[in-house]
Amino acid sequence: MTEPIIRIKHLSKVFGKQPQKVMPLVRQGIHKDTLLAEHEHALGLRDINLDILPGEIFVIMGLSGSGKSTLIRHFNRLIDPTEGEIWIKGTDITQLKNKALEQFRQQHLSMVFQRFALLPHRTVLDNIAYGLEIQKVDKPKRREKARYWLKQVGLEGYDAQYPNQLSGGQQQRVGLARALCTDADILLMDEAFSALDPLIRAEMQDQLKQLQSRLRKTIVFITHDLDEAVKLGDRIAILKDGILVQQGTPEHILHNPADEYVEAFVQNVRR
């Protein structure tokens, strides 16, 4: 049995003025709508428990508002949890102070964003090298590495272009190269392909699978598209209203949907 590289324990997130005050209600299982209407706090996540193994693509799936983007932002603490523990490579990152957290992000985590989030005033090459620049790697070295990853994502020769001279698909390749360039072994992908049109999306999915077969990163992939989840995921977790309703392999979920919500998802999958 391999040790999980990421272990989430009893993670809850409540948005509002005094989240701690309403936590007892959350633990008792108050409904999301009641919490909002009567206590003016929004429930983001409730009692999430997850184990993610090294080298797998773990897909977290849900409709918009299900808390999936909130959840992935806990993995690198872009959002702080209200309660719970987040163990990554044996460190509970909820306990890290600012500097240590920045260090940890630099070393172990990188991220790809739905709307690319590239630096518009920098060339493609300097965008890819940005992670290394933060780690104070010197310029020739980081550029050399950035050039390597540019080639890996199939954009050789685009070094000196600016992001808005590229198409959406190309921009996201830059986003992917930027994330891979730091050599972090955990890759967080927040609806990374959702903003792309279907053909490009399929192409990017294939490219990701192909890269993954060589790199063996641990990838946490967020999507609202079950087709994508089934295609990419080694395991899938399904979120609804901030609660984890089911997790397992794609086959398991397709054949044994836990409730109507999952069932509705599954029916739309083209087999």
Partner: peptide, 21 residues
């Protein structure tokens, strides 16, 4: 753009680095 700022944070940039870059 909040997205770009978030990206910088996600890659481990501190306050000064986010400010200057």
């Amino acid at each position: 753009d909040k997205d770009v700022l978030e990206a910088a944070t996600a890659f481990g940039a501190g306050y000064l680095k986010r400010l200057t870059s």
